[in-house]
Amino acid sequence: MAETKLTHRAEAILIGGSTGSIEVLLRLLPTLPDPLSFALIIVLHRKNTADSTLANLLSLKTNSPFREVDDKDLIKPGTIYLAPADYHLLIEQDKSFSLDDSEKVNYSRPSIDVTFESAADVYGSSLIGILLSGANADGTKGMQAIKKRGGLLVAQHPDTALVGYMPQQAIENTTVDHVLDVAGIIEFLNSVNTA
């Protein structure tokens, strides 16, 4: 049988991170293909104040449309979305966002688990979950949910993360398909939906 190069197809890619993940995003965003062939949804643990400095900082690093999510925004391919501070970010079956200000999950709002689990329900196997640096176990249950629905998992290599705990938890508790350093994650993201 001829060997075929594996390319992953995805309608949406989720990136979750906490301590040490903003630095990774600042490196990663400028290297993304333009235009993007998928929707990119970013969930970061952040201060619970509604200021736009993080959104401004990240949006400067990309030419793709970038927005901090408003309630009921439709998810469009090619667009990068950031979960707003102090709300959980959920995804509806019609591929629009809903916000939720209920209790913190894993001491966090937004919680990575909440978004990842909700997205897994909607996108099934057409979803990729990426977990970056962080000092919290948030994200592991979300990664498990994505796996269960046939999606693909990527974790930042814990040794290359500022804090390896978050990706390490996912690696220990589910089957992560690719454990990569930042350069590897960049290469991976550029291979999605090609050929």
Binding site: L90, E92, Q93, S98, D100, D121
Partner: peptide, 9 residues
Amino acid sequence: YSRASLKRR
């Protein structure tokens, strides 16, 4: 009600 949130609750 927003279905995703309701389901979670």
